[in-house]
Simulated assay, not measured.
Amino acid sequence: MRKKIDLSEMLIAICVSYTIISLVNAGLAIGHGSESISAANEFNIILWTSLGVGVLYTHHYFERLSPLVMIIVQYGIALGLVFAVLFIEAQFVELHPDAYRDGFRSFTIPYIIGGSLYYIEVFRDAKMQNKLLQEIKSNKA
């Protein structure tokens, strides 16, 4: 049985992730001597954060796969969506020649950190549920 995606939980994860990433981005910008962050950059941060969190929350649809394959497939999907966003952006504005490389780095680093935290929690919950099931089974016997 597949678990339904909890949209309110996902929205909270998006908001928290966006806040953390924006604060780190602002700190890095100040550290490099640039105090302004463009609106386009902020828009990309919220969009890419939403894509990354949204893809992570679809892990229930990939339960048939091994955990490692599931994680790799989800990352591939998320990165593909980020590149699609960059491609669409390029139709309207001129992107920096290194936009795809920079997008790859700017997305991958937070995704690995956030994804690791997400999957640690998922696996911890699964382990706890398995332990509860074993206790129920042993109490019935």
Score class of each variant (00 low, 15 high):
residue 129 Q to C: 02
residue 108 T to E: 04
residue 57 Y to P: 05
residue 4 K to N: 15
residue 110 P to G: 05
residue 115 G to F: 00
residue 38 S to K: 04
residue 72 I to M: 09
residue 42 E to N: 09
residue 3 K to H: 14
residue 51 L to C: 02
residue 127 K to W: 12
residue 65 L to C: 11
residue 29 A to N: 14
residue 120 I to V: 15
residue 107 F to I: 09
residue 113 I to A: 12
residue 19 T to M: 13
residue 105 R to S: 09
residue 89 E to Q: 13
residue 5 I to V: 15
residue 98 D to F: 13
residue 37 I to C: 01
residue 100 Y to E: 07
residue 117 L to M: 10
residue 104 F to D: 01
residue 125 D to A: 14
residue 16 V to F: 08
residue 53 V to A: 04
residue 120 I to P: 03
residue 58 T to R: 09
residue 103 G to V: 02
residue 36 S to V: 03
residue 38 S to W: 05
residue 42 E to P: 00
residue 102 D to G: 00
residue 1 M to V: 13
residue 53 V to G: 01
residue 128 M to S: 09
residue 50 S to M: 08
residue 35 E to G: 13
residue 9 E to Q: 15
residue 109 I to C: 03
residue 117 L to D: 02
residue 99 A to T: 06
residue 73 V to A: 12
residue 31 G to W: 06
residue 79 L to P: 00
residue 71 I to Y: 13
residue 117 L to S: 06
residue 46 I to G: 00
residue 127 K to Q: 10
residue 21 I to A: 04
residue 63 E to I: 14
residue 96 H to Q: 10
residue 22 S to L: 14
residue 112 I to D: 03
residue 48 W to K: 04
residue 60 H to R: 15
residue 120 I to S: 07
residue 132 L to Y: 06
residue 72 I to A: 15
residue 118 Y to L: 05
residue 61 Y to H: 13
residue 68 L to E: 11
residue 112 I to A: 12
residue 54 G to C: 05
residue 84 A to P: 00
residue 17 S to C: 09
residue 122 V to H: 03
residue 132 L to S: 11
residue 35 E to R: 03
residue 124 R to E: 05
residue 32 H to M: 14
residue 35 E to I: 12
residue 38 S to T: 14
residue 53 V to Y: 01
residue 3 K to P: 05
residue 135 E to V: 10
residue 17 S to K: 01
residue 52 G to L: 04
residue 117 L to H: 03
residue 54 G to N: 05
residue 23 L to Y: 10
residue 6 D to V: 09
residue 123 F to K: 10
residue 34 S to D: 14
residue 56 L to S: 02
residue 16 V to L: 13
residue 54 G to Q: 00
residue 86 L to A: 03
residue 17 S to F: 03
residue 133 L to S: 06
residue 35 E to K: 11
